[in-house]
């Protein structure tokens, strides 16, 4: 039952999304816009893995993203690794940060969110500190002109998106995912039912860190010239969270819908009426929260349509 569902989700959600993401650059030439869509699709799903399945809101999610970007860049600059291998360093950096921050999972609710935010800011302060210029280039920023390869890095970003979607489909259709949801609803009961609460949570936490680190690494590769404030911008966290929640978390399609609709609108307004851009966007978000608080997918559910 779970397995056939997983197959269905792979066929009808993962494959079409990846196909569209992979093929659109052939038809539409602003590849960077598409790239940012892929980045936010991945980040929103990463938020989904953590928040949707464990209830922890990673308000400083950008910390993993930024650390991934720097892990990648340092591996290219100092170890002269080829980009694909350097992505391994990006993943490693994010997972290591995840390990260091694992104790934060002892906190709940807003406490976790705020502590996570503080952790991401702390990472930014460390990376951009001029005392570390020899290692991180401090505030002077990264230039990776030597490995710049927009088409290849775009392809890799799509692959990471596929991996992330696959993970979410797995969570949605596996005992492990069910265990996570059980822990989210009531950790005491779940523990009594024989679920290792700490282990399952930590795993989801690391998965979500890994995803962000990888996509952060590709972001560094694609953008190739950037400052620390670029890859540690809190807007990455906030956008990813807003997109995921707008669509609806603990689903596969919710975050996808959120990114396509909201980031789509963001760009459409940004290009058509930039002067009122922030105003319209803010008002839109407020309206959505007030009138559609459980995400767009809840609307479909209300109409009796099951949304995966």
């Amino acid at each position: 039952m779970l397995r056939t569902k997983a197959l269905r989700h792979t066929l009808f959600i993962l494959l079409p999304v990846i196909a569209v993401a992979g093929l659109l650059p052939l038809a539409y030439s602003n590849q960077l816009l598409l790239f940012n869509f892929v980045v936010f699709l991945t980040l929103a799903q990463g938020v989904n893995i953590l928040y949707g399945f464990t209830g922890y809101l990673p308000f400083g999610y950008v910390g993993f993203f930024g650390v991934g970007a720097y892990g990648f860049s340092l591996a290219v600059m100092h170890l002269h690794l080829p980009p694909l291998a350097a992505l391994g360093a990006a993943a490693l950096a994010a997972v290591l940060l995840g390990l260091v921050l694992t104790p934060l999972l002892r906190l709940s609710g807003a406490y976790f969110a705020i502590a996570n935010l503080a952790a991401s800011q702390a990472m930014f302060q460390v990376v951009s500190n001029p005392n570390l210029t020899d290692i991180t280039k401090g505030p002077y920023g990264i230039s990776l002109a030597g490995v710049f390869a927009p088409n290849l890095s775009y392809g890799v970003a799509v692959a990471i998106l596929a991996l992330t979607l696959g993970t979410v489909i797995y969570l949605r259709n596996s005992r492990f995912g069910l265990a996570l949801l059980a822990v989210r609803e009531d950790s005491v009961t779940a523990a009594m039912a024989g679920i290792d609460v700490v282990r399952t949570r930590t795993l989801a936490w690391q998965l979500s860190a890994l995803v962000a680190g990888l996509i952060g690494g590709v972001f560094a590769w694609y953008v190739s010239v950037f400052y620390p404030e670029t890859v540690f911008s809190p807007e990455f966290s906030i956008f990813a969270i807003v997109f995921a929640l707008f669509g609806g978390v603990a689903t596969i399609t919710g975050p996808i819908l959120g990114v396509v609709v909201l980031y789509g609108i963001y760009n459409a307004i940004g290009i058509s009426t930039p002067q009122y851009f922030q105003l319209i966007y803010g008002a839109l978000i407020m309206g959505l929260v007030l009138f559609l608080p459980n995400g767009v997918v809840s609307l479909f559910r209300r109409w009796g349509i099951d949304v995966p």
Binding site: L57, F59, A113, I238, I241, V242, L245, F246, Y276, F277, Q278, L279, Y281, G282, A283, L284, I285, M286, L288, V289, L290, P293
Partner: peptide
């Protein structure tokens, strides 16, 4: 949810 709502409000105020 309040985090998101007030993020929207914050955008409106700044704009």
């Amino acid at each position: 949810l309040s985090i998101i709502f007030f993020f929207g409000l914050s955008q409106v105020i700044v704009a």
